[in-house]
Design a protein around this nucleic acid. Structure first.
Lengths: 249, 249
DNA sequence: GATGTGGTATTGTAATACAAATAGGTTTTG
DNA sequence: CAAAACCTATTTGTATTACAATACCACATC
């Protein structure tokens, strides 16, 4: 339990959820029964049961009387749930998860940008524009603020599609950008080349040119993917020769 | 409450969830407090609280002491959760939701098919092939079985991408196909033209031709979308002139 | 040996009591 | 009179106990 959360139930949810998603318990296998969890975690059965309900609602587990509570097949997990995404990110040693995240973005975001270019209202375009301006302002100095603005830029585009089924994709975007920041452990100046790439997308959206928006978004994502792949490759190489720790950042 | 569910908690979850998603309570507003719900639904506080935890885990609501439990902004809802999708479908008078579902499929599935064409293992291809054979067998006679096979066909393709973030899309596919079946209220023979369109996708997957898979999937979805749009337009027309019911199909 | 039957362990539901947090009003203070 | 500190009442959070419902397992019965 990293930091203390708002209430006991949330702590248990994150503890159990993290263990399940990171592969501590195989699908089909049962998690410890309620009383065992009560004793192990030092909380009442009320808390344990409410936590189990939360995890069940995310598709991770399923309880039946007498049979116990079993982990459901991974296909049934709500992989776009913010918590599930964060638990998955926590146990991503190899960077494989980050690769999947960016891959998914490549598949979805270009088309979403095209739809946004067709439909975005003026207020939505303004919001996207503001996010870009914030990126422009913070690029080169404040990495954290740049990250937040970057996430907002892409999230607002998902909203601007006018299709609610795109909103969960925002969770993937956030996780992807955060994880890639950690992996590429970039310096403030590294953000600068990203600004014109985003500007191209913004222009296409404002001009209501779907094709241009699609292509601009895709090339931006391909660029990001390339950088990530290179960084992962580098850390993998570094891990191979035991302990050289190339902390050139 | 359509049919009685496995336990009380699930009943409450579906009752409350349905009311929230269908717009019965606006985002930012509070739902009735726990004891009120206990009395209104005739269950204990234990059940109500566990139901609330479930809905909170799906992103619909958020509780704080004293402040009550409020409905979160719709952006935060897990729109790809099976339950949320079904509640949304239940309150789709205009067919607008069905249009959004198919739109989302058009944005995601072609790219997913391309990825599947690159990566699908032989066993995955076999599963997709079996689903298609089932479609071929049932087309023209058993509408229900055809629907199930159709869902399986598309779901297996999502799995074959090898990227877990695509699995929740399967929920959209299922809901979309079910809803479109209801709207177009088709006869068994209407399924027959769909078979060769799916076969084209299958062939492209087996031959590992991403571009072809992409295009075949897209044209299939465009075809389906056209039929749906026509059916919705027709029912809308029928509703406008009160009771003429132009049953020329 | 197959089938039915009951015991038993585990989750499901109810009820009660108290703790913690906080919105909103009340008092105190400048 | 305004603002800040402080109460208080209300609502969710947690603990405890008890019992109901269910499904697995072993035993008994035919």
């Amino acid at each position: 339990m990293s930091r203390t959360r708002r209430n006991l139930c949330e702590q248990v949810v994150h503890d159990l959820g993290g263990r399940i998603v990171s592969g501590g318990i195989d699908p089909g296998d049962a998690i410890p029964q309620e009383w065992t969890l009560c004793e192990r975690m030092g909380v009442s059965r009320t808390v344990i049961r409410e936590a189990i309900k939360s995890l069940a609602a995310k598709g991770l587990i399923e309880s039946r009387a007498k049979r116990g509570t079993i982990v459901r097949p991974t296909n049934d997990w709500n992989h776009l749930d913010p918590d599930v995404i964060s638990w998955r990110a926590r146990s991503d040693e190899s960077g494989q998860n980050l690769i999947r995240l960016t891959e998914f973005r490549q598949a979805v975001e270009p088309k979403a940008a095209a739809m946004a270019a067709e439909r975005a209202s003026t207020t939505e375009l303004e919001r996207i524009g503001e996010a870009w301006e914030e990126m422009d302002r913070t690029a080169g100095n404040d990495v954290e603020a740049f990250l937040a603005a970057d996430i907002r830029f892409h999230t607002e585009i998902m909203q601007a599609t006018g299709n609610p089924f795109f909103s969960p994709v925002a969770n993937v975007i956030g996780a992807s950008l955060e994880a890639s920041l950690r992996v590429t452990n970039c310096l403030p100046p590294d953000n600068i080349p990203s600004v014109p790439l985003h500007e191209k997308v913004l222009r296409a959206l404002v001009d209501h040119r779907p094709m241009a928006a699609h292509d601009a978004m895709l090339s931006m994502l391909l660029d990001a993917a390339k950088r990530i792949e290179r960084a992962i490759q580098k850390t993998a190489d570094a891990n191979e020769d035991h302990r050289s720790t190339p902390r050139d950042g």
